[in-house]
């Protein structure tokens, strides 16, 4: 247990995630699939960025989505395709989870916003004029 002050300085330090919807097997399956959508390269992949947990949590908040997702997962043949409805749903949730995670946003995309600046310079490239 960290002292309260240290916890405050590290808001991202959270307890290990307890599954709300998925069984451990489903969790493993989802982790494998999301890593096929966004794999680890020289930057983290989807499961490095806790996307399976993100999806589990999302499903716990929406009964209709949960039923649709779990039914889709059970019937899924494992072949990702943009025309398969479950595959599409999984891809969209992976995108939502990954690109709002610290790993996805900062390490992969290089986002460094939402800070305190004293000046905003805007575009400084003469060739964009």
């Amino acid at each position: 247990m960290l002292p309260a002050a240290a916890q405050h300085e590290h808001p991202e330090v959270v307890a290990a995630y307890t599954l709300k919807v998925f069984s451990p097997d489903e969790m493993k399956r989802v982790a494998t699939l999301v890593d096929l959508i966004i794999p680890r390269t020289d930057t983290p992949g989807a499961s490095d960025a806790h996307v399976p947990e993100f999806i589990d949590r999302k499903l716990s908040l929406n009964e209709e989505l949960k039923d649709r997702f779990l039914a889709g997962l059970r019937g899924f043949d494992g072949v990702l395709s943009d025309s398969n409805p479950f595959s599409k749903l999984l891809k969209e949730m992976t995108i939502d989870g990954y690109y709002t995670s610290k790993e996805g946003l900062t390490q992969e995309l290089g986002w460094h916003g939402n800070t305190f600046l004293t000046e905003f310079k805007g575009c400084t490239h003469a060739d964009h004029e």
């Binding site: 794999p39 891809k91 969209e92 995108i95 690109y99 946003l105 992969e108 995309l109």
Partner: peptide, 26 residues
């Protein structure tokens, strides 16, 4: 640059190529 990449939902494909396509466009 936004604090998400919702546009990625309309990009086709999966895997390393997809990841690269998102990053390039971001």
């Amino acid at each position: 640059a936004q604090a998400d990449a919702g546009f990625a939902k309309v990009l086709p494909g999966f895997g390393v190529d997809f990841k690269t396509a998102v990053k390039k466009r971001y």
